[in-house]
Structure formats: C-alpha cells, structure tokens
C-alpha cells in the first residue's frame, strides 16, 4: 500500500504515529542488477588482491575509464556493429519466415529439407567468411551476411516445426469441411507457429551478434570486432574489454526487446497449454 491509497478524508495523524507502510523491496526485480554489481565488485577485488596487470585483466574501473576515454570510436563502432547485426537479423527474419513456411508446408518437404538444413547449420559460419570476402570484399557486407547466415536457421526450424506439428484432429475437422491446404495454413498453421517464431527471435538475435562480430574481427575495418582486434594488437587490453562490455549491453538490450515483442504478440501461448 502506498500513501496515495490512504483516503484524503482520514484525520490528520502525526507522521510518527502512522504505522509505517512496510517497504516491500522487490528482490526478484532487483536481483539481476544486484548480481551484476556483485560480479563487478568481485572482479575489481580479485584484480586488486592479486595485483593483476591491466594487460592481463583490467579491473572494471579501468574498463569504464577506457570507455570514457575512447567514447567517440567506441560509440561509432558500436553503432556499426548494431547496424550490421540488425540488418543481418532482419534478413534472417524475412528468409527464415519464408523458408520456414515453405519447409513446414508439407510433411514431404519437411522430411526432405530438414537433414539438408541440419548439415548446413553444422558448418561453422566462420569458415564461410573467407568465401564471403572473396565475393563481396571486406567490410559491411560479409558482416551482415554472416549475421544472417548464422541466425536464420533457428527461425526456419521453429516456424517449420510450428506448422508441421498441427494436431491431426484439428486438420481432420477442417478437411472434413472442405478446407484446402492453404485454408489450414492460414487459419491454423501460421497463427500456431507464431509463438515458435517469436520465441526463436531471442535465440536468433544473440547468434546474429556472434556472426557480425566474428566477421568484423577477421574481415572489416569497422565495428566492435575490428576495434577489439586492433586494440588487442596494440596491447590495449582495457579497450578490448570496453568493446566486450558494449557488446554485452547491445546483446542484452536486443534480447530484451525480442522478449518484449514475444510477450506482446503471443500472450495467448503463455496462458494455454500449447505454449510449452
């Protein structure tokens, strides 16, 4: 109960006499922040205790100092990485939805293409970067494409699975009414695969960051990946960690955004049994 809930007609009572509304601290909401803070504290303490040189492991304070010191390049490169990642991710959404719908359309296509896709997904995408460089040169394009290639697979699998696992009874009821394949897909398959789709976005965005940063590290003059690898060659370890920190922030922000979208779009799936 907050003070606002007290009816204004209540007789004035000396503040000290009021039964103190118990300050309820929401520990669950606070926990992520506290744990993060705890990690930094332990990290700082360990560095000081063991007197680790900043070239080995810089303390968090030293990393934040680097962030302030190099803010301009860090900001520019962070934006570049965010740009390549989201672009690759957007492509992955379009292609993933398209291919997912195609693969899930029929049990035959699903059976035929699934092993192929597993095989493709087993290829480490880092191995593709040199090929992309041959085709497109270094820079933004290979980073976008690597982010795309690495993140579209979970989207495809989830959309296709959502379509391919329609309950046979539902299909029977509709087919008995004269429903065509397209009807069943539009009325049941696609709405039903949406929770799978939005769920896969959380996984996909994280992977997209892996893809873009790997590509920037080996084949670009921009982006956090490139910034970190050049900082590393100059033994500027605090700057490397500053880059890592920015990546973590971007990753968490995008993940949270995807989780929020998922909740907004498919609330029903969390209430009904189908969601799990």
């Amino acid at each position: 109960m907050t003070d606002a809930a007290v009816p204004p007609a209540a007789p004035p009572v000396p503040a000290a006499a009021l039964p103190r509304p118990k300050a309820r601290i929401n520990w669950i909401r606070l926990a992520p922040w506290l744990y993060t803070l705890g990690l930094f504290v332990i990290w700082e303490a360990a560095v000081r205790l063991f007197e680790l040189p900043p070239t080995l492991l810089p303390a968090p304070t030293r990393v934040f100092q680097a962030i302030v010191q190099y803010w301009s390049p860090i900001w520019k490169n962070s934006l570049q990485t965010l740009y390549t990642t989201t672009l690759g991710f957007a492509l992955a959404i379009v292609a993933g939805l398209g291919i997912g719908l195609f693969v899930g359309w029929s049990k035959t296509i699903y059976a035929g293409l699934y092993p192929l896709m597993i095989g493709f997904n087993a290829i480490p995408k880092v191995a593709l970067v040199p090929i992309l460089v041959i085709w497109f040169g270094i820079g933004t394009v290979p980073a976008v494409l690597t982010a795309f290639l690495i993140s579209f697979f979970p989207i495809v699998v989830n959309v296709a699975t959502g379509l391919a696992t329609i309950e046979p009874e539902t299909e029977d009821v509709l087919r008995a009414l004269g429903a065509k394949k397209l009807d069943i897909m539009l009325k049941v398959g696609i709405p039903r695969s949406m929770p799978y789709f939005f769920g896969s976005l959380k996984v996909a965005i994280t992977l997209a960051f892996v893809g873009s940063v790997v590509s920037e590290t080996v084949a670009s003059n921009y982006g956090l990946g490139n910034m970190m690898s050049s900082a590393q060659s100059q033994f500027n370890v605090p700057l490397v960690f500053a880059g890592l920190m920015m990546l973590a922030v971007e990753g968490i922000a995008m993940y949270a955004l995807m989780a929020w979208i998922e909740r907004r779009m498919t609330g029903w799936a969390h209430r009904s049994t189908m969601g799990n």
Partner: peptide, 8 residues
C-alpha cells in the same frame, strides 16, 4: 475427444 479449440 480432444476439443482442439484454437487458443488464439
């Protein structure tokens, strides 16, 4: 037996 109502 399974009512198969669409949850959305």
């Amino acid at each position: 037996q399974n009512p198969t109502m669409l949850p959305w």
